[in-house]
Design a protein around this nucleic acid. Structure first.
Lengths: 178, 178
DNA sequence: GCATTCACTCTACACGTGTTGAGCGAGGTG
DNA sequence: CACCTCGCTCAACACGTGTAGAGTGAATGC
């Protein structure tokens, strides 16, 4: 809240943040093929500065793609939908970067995979026993698919769908019998 | 069946096919970032020849990514799973190329989108009326998500799952009430 | 058997990339 | 005010890319 004139270190840190955000948006828009130059342009900065801050494109990518939430003890099943953002209009920048890159970057794929496994494990605990593990994996994967369809493929049927409807529907799958 | 010695034109056509297959595998493995040189290497051919056959990388990509099946009048709901290959161990090369690129190539994204819309429309016809369109879109997107999780993210729970189990489960969602 | 075609390879070019090191000039310090 | 610090820009590099055009030698047709 104190709006003192920023010190040099603060300004530096601020541009570092601006660069990271620019990177998330660029990776989110073009995947891991996004360019250091394009990131720099978006941040209003020289390309070289990007590397002085983050060392290499790879390192910056890793940071940009790190998932935002390690939310610990939340109630599981209904919340799930929100996590992978079935109902959010806009995805968090880092999530978007991660998803956009997950099919072309091994690192992003691995990150998404552990994220999904983690979520599925959580979900399985709260499910009827029968094939719980498999069914949890299916639900989690489905939510990912729906998220892709909505945010990256612009499927019209999902475009103007009510997030709550979607969440309720998906939630009902949680207790479906095989 | 007649194994006459191949004419010049036949041999040319054969190498064209080899190049296209190589392209599908390379695009399937690395997305639209795959290299003309890598495609040529895989086909055992000079990079320049790839362009003499297909004009440009873009044109080759378009061809490599074209979906295989315009199967017309098939029975819809159960078959759906197979189409997006929830139960197949290995994806068709063109499908793999299409999916791998759909998040980084606008053309692939559009192709996948129309494919999904088409499938959803088919599926909606065979569903209980309530919210049929939305629910069909959700099911189709889910199958895509499951396919991604299994074939690109290597989710272990799906890795060794029985394809029929998965198909049956997904199929049951088709008649889920909202 | 000879001239021609033509499927294919070789060489080259222009360009965009990630990355580096030198240099500049405003901000901090005495 | 003078000096130094250091966040930042500039200029350059080596490299991989898509693509074009000339060249080559074996299959073809007379």
């Amino acid at each position: 809240m104190a709006d003192h004139t920023p010190t040099r270190a603060e300004r530096r840190e601020a541009t570092a943040r601006r660069i990271l955000e620019a990177a998330q948006h660029e990776f989110g828009a073009h995947g891991d093929g996004a360019t250091i130059r394009s990131i720099a342009r978006r941040a209003g900065v020289d390309p070289s500065l990007v590397l002085q801050h983050y060392g290499s494109k790879q390192a910056l990518f890793s940071l940009a793609v790190r998932p935002v939430s390690d939310l610990e003890g939340e109630d599981v099943p209904a919340h799930l939908a929100e996590v992978l953002d079935v109902r959010l209009r806009e995805l968090p920048a880092s999530t978007k970067a991660l998803m956009r890159s997950m099919l072309t970057s091994a690192e992003a794929a691995e990150a998404m995979s552990v994220y999904l496994r983690e979520r599925a494990a959580r979900l399985a605990e709260a499910m009827p026993d029968d094939h719980a593990e498999l069914r949890a994996a299916l639900v989690v994967s489905s939510i990912m698919g729906i998220t892709i369809a909505r945010h990256f493929l612009d499927l019209p049927a999902l475009e103007d769908a009510d997030g709550d409807d979607v969440a309720a529907l998906v939630d009902s799958w949680t207790s479906t019998a095989p």
